[in-house]
């Protein structure tokens, strides 16, 4: 009993790191610009397919193709921002959240449909020569690709943290999260910060997508569930805190695998969503609203 449970928890932690990575982009974009981009999961899907096809057609190792995925998603993000999201910046906050959510839905419908037509509804996953490799530790199995993914997630989150804490541009982003009017008075170009945060958010989703396609599988309809998972983690982790988001991801991952162990694999998703609803109802403004400094 204990051994399989521990194994389950390990898997939960491993996928939890991915949830954290997926959520951090959504959280960054929401914090900076109050765009709740519900097509985030589809961006993740695009990242997954990008790596899949680069691997399939060009035989480039998926871990090595991550920079390509990043460039691809930065570009996609730039286009979506310019064409669609930039038109929402002048709205008042409530309206901005609502309308970004709606256009996000339109966008996710489009991306799902296009992915379905271009790449069929098949589940895809990247199988490399080392995919089957795993380590054994105290009788617990640690698949190599998932360990590497964990490492990459951690590195990505730490890099983002350093960028936000140490660079002038990163500080400008944090200042905009806190108070965009004051930030504007400092000479920070708010629109540039919005754009930057948006494309970084897309790139992070892309990296997460690549890791999902290596460790698990991708398909055109995966987006909505990944968006919801990212929202759950965002809510759990609190806004603007990288460590919080990462921990939130782990909590969701472990909750899911514990649910799978005790109730059944089919109930993983439901457990996460219930967790989400409970937090949403009991702490409605605490989730997205608080400023770090007020606590």
């Amino acid at each position: 009993m204990l051994q399989p449970l521990a194994q389950n928890i390990i898997y939960g932690i491993l996928i939890g790191a991915l949830y954290g990575l997926a959520a951090v982009g959504l959280s960054l974009v929401f914090g900076v610009s109050k765009f709740l981009n519900v097509s985030h999961g589809e961006l993740l899907m695009l990242g997954g397919y990008a790596s899949f096809w680069v691997f399939k057609l060009l035989k480039i190792d998926p871990f090595l193709s991550i920079p390509l995925t990043i460039i691809f998603l930065l570009l996609i993000g730039f286009i979506f921002y310019r064409l669609i999201f930039s038109r929402l910046i002048k709205l008042e906050v409530e309206k901005k959240i609502q309308n970004s959510l709606l256009v996000g839905f339109g966008l996710s419908t489009i991306l799902q449909n296009v992915a379905l037509r271009l790449w069929t509804a098949d589940d895809r996953s990247i199988t490399t020569a080392y995919s089957g490799l795993s380590f054994e530790l105290a009788g617990l199995r640690l698949p190599a690709v998932r360990l590497i993914s964990l490492a990459i997630s951690v590195v990505a989150l730490i890099s983002l943290q350093i960028f936000l804490k140490k660079t002038f541009t990163g500080k400008a982003i944090r200042a905009t999260v806190e108070d965009w009017q004051s930030a504007s008075l400092m000479g920070i170009n708010i629109h540039r910060v919005y754009l930057l945060a948006f494309v970084i958010g897309c790139a992070l989703a892309g990296v997460a997508g690549t890791l999902v396609s290596i460790c698990y599988s991708i398909d055109p309809s995966m987006g909505l569930n990944w968006t919801l998972k990212s929202m759950v983690v965002m809510v759990l982790g609190g806004l603007g805190s990288m460590i919080g988001t990462f921990v939130g991801g782990i909590i969701l991952g472990v909750t899911e695998s514990a649910t799978a162990f005790f109730i059944g694999g089919n109930y993983r998703l439901i457990a996460g969503l219930l967790l989400f609803l409970i937090i949403l109802i009991f702490r409605p403004q605490g989730l997205f609203g608080t400023k770090e400094g007020d606590r």
């Binding site: 709740l36 409530e94 959240i97 609502q98 959510l101 909505l224 569930n225 919801l228 929202m231 998703l269 439901i270 969503l273 219930l274 989400f276 609803l277 949403l280 109802i281 409605p284 997205f288």
Partner: peptide
């Protein structure tokens, strides 16, 4: 839940 929070709450409910 108000505004967008109602919206995502109902979305989650539907998915559940």
């Amino acid at each position: 839940l108000r505004g967008a929070y109602f919206t995502i709450g109902t979305l989650a409910l539907g998915q559940i």
